[in-house]
Amino acid sequence: MNKILVTNISYTVKGKQILKDLSFEVKQNEVFALIGKNGSGKSSLIDIILQDLKPDCGEVKLFEKEKFNYKNVGILYDHLPLISLLRVEEIIKYYCTVHKLKYAAIVQHFFEDFEISPIEKSYIRTLSLGEKKRVSILLAVMHNPDLLILDEPFANVDPTITNRIWNVLKRDGRTIFFTTHNWADAEKRADKVAFLGNGQLIAEPLRPAEAIKNLPAQKKLIFTSTQEIEQLLTKEAYYKHDGNIVCFSQPGSSLIGVIAQHTSNFSIQDVDLTDVYLFHLKAESHV
C-alpha cells in the first residue's frame, strides 16, 4: 500500500521552475528520506504533498486517496507550530484537547525520550532552536499518526537525543517521509533515499547501501582540480566539486600512481551518499 504517491508534479513560482515532473511513492512502514541542498525545493514539495500549495500539474495521493484528512498524519513544516509567549506545557495541553488525549499519558510516553520535563514550564521564547524543534516533533507525533511528514526534523537538535527520538518516531512501524540535508542522518535512518536537485529526482529512490553500491567504485580519490590532471582522466568516472576533483577509483587501480606524479596533495576515502548525490547531479557535465 502506498502512503504517499506523487505523480508528475511540476511547480513554478514567478517563472522559476522549482519542481519538474516529479514522481515517487512512499510505501507503508517505509522511512523515506528526501535529500537535497537548501533551496532545492524540498519544502515546496512538502507543501504540495500537504495541499498548501497547488502544483502546476500532477497529483498527490495520501493513503491512496486524492481527498484526505490529516487525522492520521503528523506534520512538521520548515517553520514551527509554536507561539512565543506560551509555555511548552500550555501548547502541549492545547494539542491534547484537540486530539482528545490525556496530558498525563503524553508525559508518561514521550517526555523522557524528548527530554521535555526540564523545559515543560518554560516559555517558548526562552527555548533554544533545538528545544523548540523537540517540542514541535512531539506535537507531530503525540497523537500516534500512521504517517509522519517532517521537514528537516533534526536540524539543530542535540545529536545525543536524536537516537531516542527516532526510536519513538519509528515505533509501530510508522511510515515516515522526511527531508534533510544531513547525508549521514539519511544514510543511517532511512530505508530509502531520493535526491532532489534542479527540481528533479536525480536518481531512482533506493536503499542507501544500494545507492552507494551503484556508484562506479567504493573508494574515491580527492585532489585539487587542475586542467592538467583533468586531461589525464579519460576512462575514470569523476565529478568536480568545490574546486576539487572527486574521482572514483577501484582497489589496485593505477590511478593513484598517476595522480601522485602530479600532486602530493590528495586523499583516499570511502564513498558515501554525498557522492551519490553529487555524482548524479554533476555527472552529465563531467564524465
Partner: peptide, 13 residues
C-alpha cells in the same frame, strides 16, 4: 505570515 495557519488547518478541529 508565520505559517502557523498551515498547522491549524491540519489539526482535527
Amino acid at each position: 505570515a508565520s505559517g502557523l495557519i498551515k498547522y491549524l488547518r491540519k489539526l482535527p478541529m
